[in-house]
Design a protein around this nucleic acid. Sequence first.
DNA 1: AATACGATTAAACAATTATTTAAATATTTA
DNA 2: TAAATATTTAAATAATTGTTTAATCGTATT
Lengths: 118, 118
Amino acid sequence: MTTPHNHHDEEFSKNILETMPSDEAVTSVSEAMKQLGDPSRLRIFWILCHTEECVIDIAAMTEMTSPAVSHHLRLLKTAGLIEARRAGKEMYYKASDTRLVRKLHKVIEEIADITCPD
Amino acid sequence: MTTPHNHHDEEFSKNILETMPSDEAVTSVSEAMKQLGDPSRLRIFWILCHTEECVIDIAAMTEMTSPAVSHHLRLLKTAGLIEARRAGKEMYYKASDTRLVRKLHKVIEEIADITCPD
DNA sequence: AATACGATTAAACAATTATTTAAATATTTA
DNA sequence: TAAATATTTAAATAATTGTTTAATCGTATT
C-alpha cells in the first residue's frame, strides 16, 4: 500500500504502517481511555486507585447519586479497571492490580500535575 | 466533610479528599483522554506522533474519508494534541511537542504492547 | 417473616457525537 | 481567470451516552 502523496521515502512509510498498533491494540487502548474520558469516571477511578470504598461513600465523595455511581462503576468494571467484593450489604470497589491500571494511574497523576500543557 | 460510612480513620479520609485532583485537573485530563478514547482519533494521533502527514495521506492510512479525518483532526487540534501548518494546497498535521503529548504517546505505546491486562 | 439498608436495574429523557453527502473555501497551475 | 486539487464546513442522520426517578434485588437485622 502506498499513500496518495509521497512525502516520505518508501522505506519510512512502509515502516510506519508495519509498526502501527493492531486493531486489537487500538481497540483495547481506546476503550480504556474512553472510560477515563468521562470526568465522573476519572474521579471515581482516581479515588479507587487510592482506597477501597463502598458505593455510598463514593457517591458522597463525588457528590453524585448512587445510581449514577453504580452505572459508572459497572463501566469501569467491565473495562477491567476496577474490581468489586461484597461484604454484607455493601459492595467494595477498588482499582484492579494490573499493569494497565498502574500505568493509567501514573499518567493521570503526571498530567494532573501539569495542568497547563507544555 | 465526612463520608456516610466510616471505613477508614478520619486522618486518612481527610487526606484523600485533600489530595484529590482539582476540578480543572480532572477536566483537562479527562478531555485529553476523551479525545483518545475514540479509536479513529487514537490511530490518527499515533500516526502523527511518528510523522507529519497531510489529510489525504492520513485518510488513506486509516481508510477513512477526508471529511471524517478533518473532523477528528479539528478535535485533536482543539485539545492541543496536534498542530497544523499549511504548505501550498496541503495542510500538514503532527503531534504537538508538549509534555502532555509525550506522556500520552508513551502510555499508548506501553499499553498497546501489553494487549492483555496483567 | 417483616423491615431496613445498600446496591443495581429499568425506563425516560437530554445531550453529545460520529459519519455521510454535498457544498464551499483556499491555493496552485494552466 | 478558469480549472484542478486539497481541505474544511454544513446539513442531515444515526448512534451512543450520561443523568434522573422509580422500582427491584440481595443481605442482614429485629
